[in-house]
């Protein structure tokens, strides 16, 4: 998708989002006795978002808005892999524990970002991916007293 298309899409979505905020704001209540209720500010914010996004939509349609280069396919793929790796790691945390989940995520991210050829890379990456979470675990759990999630295997 070109960056202009994306701009159009986001502006349109933001208009809908703004309208939804107005809707929820009405549900929360405009006033609470003599004072503004929980809904007044959502309504103001929602209207601003909808209105300003309408202007942005108009600008995007008219081609007034000049944007930088879009996201290249390679870059989008890399970012996608990194984000997916992280989300999967978070999802796996209750089963594997935070330390192992982090190790796997690190290895996956490292592989996605690989620039140097040769087998040395794998050794270094494996070392980094194993050592960092162990240090972090010791730092956070033992020194800072943070109860990091453990997996089914007990660590």
């Amino acid at each position: 998708m070109s960056v202009q298309r994306l701009d159009l899409l986001v502006a349109a979505l933001l208009i809908i989002f703004g309208l939804w905020l107005i809707y929820t704001g009405i549900g929360y209540g405009l006033m609470q006795g003599t004072t503004p209720g929980a809904g007044l500010f959502p309504i103001i914010i929602g209207s601003s978002i909808a209105l300003l996004s309408a202007i942005n939509l108009y600008r995007a349609l008219g081609g007034v808005e000049k944007l930088g280069p879009g996201i290249s396919g390679r870059e989008a793929a890399k970012a996608g892999v990194v984000i997916a790796a992280l989300l999967i790691a978070v999802w796996l945390t209750p089963y594997l524990g935070m330390m192992i989940a982090t190790m796997l995520a690190m290895a996956a991210i490292g592989l996605a970002l690989r620039t140097e050829p040769g087998p040395v890379f794998f050794v270094k990456l494996a070392a980094v991916s194993v050592i960092t979470p162990i240090i972090l675990l010791l730092l956070f759990q033992n020194l800072l007293g943070v109860p990091t999630p453990r997996g089914l295997l007990g660590f």
């Binding site: 990194v82 992280l86 995520a105 690190m106 690989r114 990456l125 980094v128």
Partner: peptide
């Protein structure tokens, strides 16, 4: 390739 995994962790 090493720095970012560490930082993200």
């Amino acid at each position: 390739a090493y720095l970012y995994p560490i930082v993200i962790a």
